[in-house]
Design a protein around this nucleic acid. Sequence first.
DNA 1: ATTACTGTACTATAATAGTAATACAGTGGA
DNA 2: TCCACTGTATTACTATTATAGTACAGTAAT
Lengths: 123, 123
Amino acid sequence: MYHIDQRSPVPVYEQLARQIERHIVSGDLADGQKLPSIRELASTLRINPNTVVKTYRQLENEGLVSSRKGLGIFVSILGMDLEGSRDSLFAELTDEYVRKAAGLGMEGDQIVQGLTRRLKGEN
Amino acid sequence: MYHIDQRSPVPVYEQLARQIERHIVSGDLADGQKLPSIRELASTLRINPNTVVKTYRQLENEGLVSSRKGLGIFVSILGMDLEGSRDSLFAELTDEYVRKAAGLGMEGDQIVQGLTRRLKGEN
DNA sequence: ATTACTGTACTATAATAGTAATACAGTGGA
DNA sequence: TCCACTGTATTACTATTATAGTACAGTAAT
């Protein structure tokens, strides 16, 4: 379901939070839907339960999920501008991509060409 | 010259190393060229000299630079396949970009469209 | 009530990241 | 020689990240 790279300099709880955030904003996880329990997700991903707690707490602070003791963690996006959030996140991704590619000396045409080739090769 | 985001979960020494790596692989920094001294770069970026040391040491371990005591840190890419490295790094960037955008529910066409719009808007 | 889930809280430990300050050694120019 | 730069090394301290283990409290089905 989710993929954690232990060698990444990005903290595990952060990797996980960003992945879940994208799943929620994409509509893949609907409002009210229950997320995996802390212990279950920790077991599946082979990480510490405390790390999952940190991930869920961060998502809760961002207003994406809400927790109910004894029940679980649930997607909570009432009245959120999902499409706006999605566009915003995508714009951030694109900015980062362009900035790094530019650092490699790539021109706009080359970037688009490389991306297109990558998409044709996989999909 | 280089930009450091202190709030990023990515360690400062890692951000800096990746940026310098891209500048070297792009050919922007030629072989034998001298990099800023440890103290100078630390002062400019307002980070600790030890952090710059860590960055330079990592680049040295990757074989991109070599240090000479009393002289400085120099780009050292004799016989390296720069173009291959550049393509490889760009492929990694593209993979990450596509994977994250896909997590947002974006289709290939939408990704290319969004990227194109971003490039036309800025350049 | 018992059981098995759920989230929450707490302590402890270890490794990493970053800052701070100091000292030492090599290089080259005045 | 002296001076100002260079990289290198060391110690100390703080905060963050991650793991580990234990305990407590709420929910629901039996």
